[in-house]
């Protein structure tokens, strides 16, 4: 890893100032993706700004939303009674990211800011119609994800929390692991809630997470695994690698969607 100066600000304002002070300053959340990237020398930050001191961790039910602070660890989301009750699919998703050790460090904000095309959280955020809250504004999930490793975040913008609208009637996530890394080869989150019936797919798309609208329409008409069983996803825009061709991924989207729907009940 290249050397850098490490900073641990205690206010969002200070963090923003540090990040704004240098074009090569980078934010560090849980570090479970970022640190391996640094170790491979794929990134050469001048400053690393640790967001752990900003007091952004925490889960709260407020009115018609479940709000998860940006630096809330995956393990905390998975274990939260509030999350399990309000959006069980979200708790289950968090409990299946990486391994126990990754879940003890990785954060929802870090996952969303990075927007790895094989990350799990983007599927939940998009399917549940969540809002990404930053130090500057609120961004609807539909506007937030802009392609592989690309988001609506502007320089100096920090995610502070993610707000999931309630009540969520149904939610579940089914993931097919890339066998070596255990990232999502295909992950499908299905939800029925304030944002309507939604199906979001991660791992498969060349442009990151996306909604499978044909499935959404079918499920809106009839919420059952059978409703999506015949719906195929075009392989044209899907990833292809040694672990899964685009055609295989397309097939798995349907299978995982069926399984998620069955799990959601």
């Amino acid at each position: 890893m290249y050397d850098f100066t490490y900073h641990r600000p205690t206010s969002v304002a200070d963090a923003v100032a540090l990040l704004g002070s240098d074009a090569d300053a980078k934010a560090l959340a849980g570090g479970q993706t970022f640190i391996p990237v640094l170790k491979q020398r794929l990134n050469k930050p001048s400053k690393v700004v640790d967001l752990a001191g900003l007091g952004l961790a925490g889960i709260s039910l407020s009115g018609n939303a479940l709000v998860i602070g940006a630096t809330t660890r995956h393990a905390a989301v998975a274990a939260s009674a509030d999350v399990r009750r309000a959006i069980p699919g979200l708790a289950a998703l968090a409990g299946g990211i990486g391994d126990n050790q990754v879940r003890h460090r990785g954060t929802i904000g870090g996952s969303l800011a990075n927007n790895d095309p094989a990350a799990c959280y983007p599927a939940a955020v998009l399917a549940l119609g969540a809002t990404i809250v930053t130090n500057k504004r609120s961004i609807a999930a539909d506007d937030y994800f802009q392609g592989m490793f690309t988001t609506a975040l502007e320089p100096g913008e920090i995610i502070t929390s993610v707000s999931f609208p309630l009540p969520v009637e149904k939610s579940a996530y089914a993931k097919f692991n890339q066998p070596a890394s255990r990232f999502a080869l295909v992950g499908v989150f299905v939800a029925k809630g304030p944002a309507g019936v939604r199906v979001a797919v991660t791992g498969a798309g060349q442009n990151g997470v996306f909604r499978q609208k044909a499935m959404e329409a079918a499920l809106a008409a009839s919420w059952s695994p059978d409703a999506v069983a015949g719906i195929k996803t075009s392989a044209a825009d899907l990833n292809s690698d040694i672990h899964g061709s685009a055609e295989y991924r397309a097939h798995l989207i349907t299978v995982m969607a069926k399984r998620a729907i069955a799990a959601a009940g």
Binding site: Y6, G31, I35, K39, Q101, R105
Partner: peptide
């Protein structure tokens, strides 16, 4: 109290 991968954590963290 939590198990973590010490190769994926900066000492300063």
């Amino acid at each position: 109290g939590d198990s973590v991968k010490s190769c994926t954590m900066l000492a300063l963290q």
